[in-house]
Amino acid sequence: MEVTDALQQFATRMGDNTLILGHRVSEWCGHAPVLEEDIALANTALDLIGQTQFWLGLAAEIQDEGKSADDIAFLRDVWDFRNLLLLELPNDDFGRTLMRQFLFDAWQSIHLPRLALSSDPRVAAIAEKASKEVAYHVERSADTVVGLGDGSAESHKRMQAALDYLWPYVGEIFDTDEVDDVLSEAGIVTHPSSLKGEYYALIERVLTKATLSIPEDPFAHKGGRSGFRHTEHLGHILVEMQWLQRAYPGSKW
């Protein structure tokens, strides 16, 4: 595999992660349990969509077919998306939304500072900017997971249920392939497998503080990152996200 093909795939994966999670988080706009959380979630969603513009912009630039980040976001179908399955799962309650946010923020908070040292200046610049946003995201989501996990009997029960439900989707972060091998060989990315220990140590520390038990079953769903098989939920997101561009191609506001 050529380095440029691998980098295009990598940028698509990064951008699809933040695009799909950004869209999911934005679904809370106007619906969060309190005003403060509503605005905080909207801010997070906007940060994620901002990161998407950079990653998918880079993917489009490498692809060199005259497409924009918007074209990539709005004119592909399910089988072309490369986001983690974790991020396309429905929000369910506020607890599950924040648990998923924490599990992803924790990964980003470890991954992005390494990417900021990339030998590719474009990757380094995007990661540098995004890592500042993510440092705040993970602080906030970790605090909320601890607050709710170690909160009332009801909030503890919901957070444990959220963790049990989401846990089988965490392992996909480390379901690496040739793309990761080629790019880490070229010094463009840090291989995810080398960050695995750090990631699990971080989430274990927070989840223990939150008085939650980490499930023991190591089973991990796969297929989002590779594009092999998404969940049924991704198509539903795309319908809502893309319908305007599909119905009125090229429309702007």
Binding site: L35, E36, I39, A40, N43, Y136, E139, R140, D143
Partner: peptide, 8 residues
């Protein structure tokens, strides 16, 4: 409160 102040 500080985090919420930052966000709001």
């Amino acid at each position: 409160a500080l985090k919420n102040a930052r966000d709001v």
